[in-house]
Design a binder for these strands. Structure first.
Lengths: 111, 111
DNA sequence: CCACTGAATCGACATCCGTCGATGAATCGC
DNA sequence: GCGATTCATCGACGGATGTCGATTCAGTGG
């Protein structure tokens, strides 16, 4: 009530977004906000067949296997990718529609 | 060269993304990856007229003015928003097309 | 010229985060 | 059952990050 009263602007249109509603999107974009993780998503998405085994992902970076595993976990917990174990190997793929839903969050309102 | 040879998968299609090319997108998504900053973008984008003065943004959060200013700076440096001073107040608006370009980065290749 | 208001910058601090080496769990082949 | 391989988890460490109070800068109006 201090400053905003003097600014005298029209009220915000629509419902801008609640504090709670921002947590989910922020989590997804935070997951994408690391160069390694963004490249991981790119590598997985670019693979024809849609599946990549961890060993291929690890070899694509100059990082240790635990570090890659850590980033994959964050991406998994954000809902962007999912994994499946087949025999010795674990395969990662994009969750269908997850990236599209994230992109839809960036649609500018009122345009 | 250790593990990837044994995995024997088809090569990645397209150009997945280089290490350098991931830095830019990661910077943008990192900026969006904070609940406060995501709400700031939402608040600015939802405002009809497209401009919001800092005082309104500050009053929308339970945070101090320097903290909001800090987040605005990060969003500005990521290229998502821009500011203009008019008299006593500073107005922020979305950079036209910036959110759309960010959303386009999430398009799944090969689909 | 000076007080006042709005906003950015600075310095400090606690916490989070990315990375590593070491270890553990799951699976396969022999 | 045993060793080898793939991947996840754990513990630790250094650097980045979000937040604050205090200060400084910019612009307005007496």
């Amino acid at each position: 009530m201090i400053a905003s009263a003097d600014c005298a602007r029209p009220p915000l249109t629509g419902q801008p977004i609640s504090e709670a509603a921002a947590a989910g999107p922020a989590r997804v974009f935070k997951a994408l906000g690391d160069p390694v993780r963004f490249r991981l998503v790119s590598l997985i998405g670019a693979r024809q067949g849609g599946e990549v085994c961890v060993c291929d992902l690890t070899s694509a970076f100059d990082l240790t296997q635990p570090t890659i595993s850590h980033h994959l976990k964050i991406l998994r917990e954000s809902g962007l990718i999912e994994s499946e174990r087949r025999g010795t190997w674990v395969y990662y793929r994009l969750v269908p529609g997850a990236l599209d839903r994230a992109a839809a969050l960036l649609a500018v309102p009122r345009v």
